[in-house]
Amino acid sequence: MKFDFTEDQHEIKRTAKDLLAARSTLEKQREAAEAGEYDLALWAELADLGWPGVAVEEAFGGGGLGYVELAGLLEEAGYALLNGPFLSTAICAAAISEAGSDSQKEEWLGRLASGEATGAFGLEGEIVPDGASSDVVVVAAPDGSSARLLTGEGAMPALQTIDPTRRYGIAEGELAEGEEMPGDVAAAIDLATVLVSAELVGVCRRVLDMTVEYVKDRKQFGRPVGSFQAVQHRCAQMLLSTEGARATTYFAAWAADSDRERLPEAASLAKSAASKAGVEVTASAIQAHGGIGFTWEADVHWFFKRAELDAAFLGSSGEHDRRLTALLSS
């Protein structure tokens, strides 16, 4: 058993982390969020590096690696609060790979993998990241019984959410339009669920790092607030939640590549843990930052907002808990 990334996979992650630390600073994220724009130059660079297509089969112009590698990249994207259509394009490619017809794969996978086209994926009736601003959108029935592929920007109405770091659309009635998709829609949903969990793991890790740094530095009553047990225990709880989300998400990414029978359960385990951790850990980060954490000027709120939207996307923690009981007791 090797319950960790291989050396190659670590290398991919490290490289991604270094690149994003340099090119996708929180200052840049703030600028983009406040202007309501994506950093398209960075997106082009990531597409050149093959990020959106890392798990797409080589036959369709992808990198031919797996969902473990893609999850690793998304974790780093979450860590950097990356703006732009990386998550949405990657999960759209995963959805078309699983649920698309041969001609749909032929038409879209190569373009999504190269970044020439952007994509989105979501559930009917729900908020869809980049749903209103992508070249191709896949909308699935929440029960996995069917899915449609829609093209062209404005496939669905745009929506303002509390998260200005990302654009969103709302899928309303899209299942009646577009092209039918003949493949495994349930698997497409599960894969997307794992991938958004990976982004949440990165979000949790980042705010935990930010919080630990802050409470070591911030002094009250003549000593660092991080030396108070109440603050220490809060941070310990953040670590427990983060590591639980991480272990379940890595397991699910591995199952996506290597044990498809366990994917439905693994995906729900990961999303339940990651949604819960995402909301709790980012909220806890605001609290640990005290008054400054409640200001627009501090950066923790971007992560809280991203986490709230990610946590609700493709099923909340409670929804996945109920699904697990149904899976378990059937």
């Binding site: 058993m1 090797k2 319950f3 960790d4 590591e243 639980g244 272990a247 379940t248 890595y250 397991f251 385990l269 339940s272 843990a273 923690s317 409670g318 996945h320 808990d321 109920r322 699904r323 697990l324 009981t325 149904a326 378990l328």
Partner: peptide, 24 residues
Amino acid sequence: AQALGEMHVRTETLRLLAYRGLSI
């Protein structure tokens, strides 16, 4: 159903964390 599911998540998280700890 939700409470039982949460217990399932915690129990499996425990197993995965323990294995990950050993493996590391």
